[in-house]
Nucleic acid binder design. Structure first.
Length: 137
DNA sequence: GCCAACGTTGGC
DNA sequence: GCCAACGTTGGC
């Protein structure tokens, strides 16, 4: 099983909206590196939901429930989307500042490639962040 | 609102 | 195929 981190601006599509919907479509990705990550996802993979711009923190854990298929918001047919469902909210949000300040996390894509909206997370990073978030890994 | 980082586009 | 110009993202 692989781990990921996916970003969304909460005023556009936030954690609470995903929880309300019970299942969400992760569309609108228009970056080749992010799209490659979407295509690598398997059903059952876990992903952190990160609020960019407002909050700048990890707020929940999602699971991939449908693997990459054509993005319905894309007319060109080049891009893909996946479906996700919320698994659990974090107990304590893990902020970008906390991630930057943590030696174990400073190599995360979130820090090194700030603009990448869909990025891999290593098992060690996943476990550590779950610990900081006060939830089981 | 500004600006740094960086991806993309288009002229050559 | 290079690289300057431009656009976008996202932190501050």
């Amino acid at each position: 099983m692989a781990y990921w981190l996916m970003k969304s601006e909460p005023d556009v599509y936030g954690w609470h909206k995903l929880v309300a919907e019970r299942r969400g479509k992760w569309d609108g990705v228009r970056n080749w590196t992010a799209a490659r990550n979407l295509k690598s996802m398997k059903i059952g993979d876990k992903a952190f939901f990160y609020h960019s711009n407002i909050g700048k923190e990890i707020v929940g854990v999602m699971e991939i429930v449908r693997e990459a298929y054509p993005d319905s918001s894309d007319d060109t047919g080049k891009w893909v989307m996946v479906d996700v469902k919320p698994v659990r909210p974090v107990k304590t949000p893990v902020t970008l500042a906390a991630i930057r300040a943590d030696k174990k996390l400073k190599d995360m894509a979130l820090v090194r490639y700030a603009r990448l909206s869909v990025q891999p997370v290593t098992p060690a990073e996943w476990t550590h962040i779950c610990h900081l978030a006060g939830i089981a890994a």
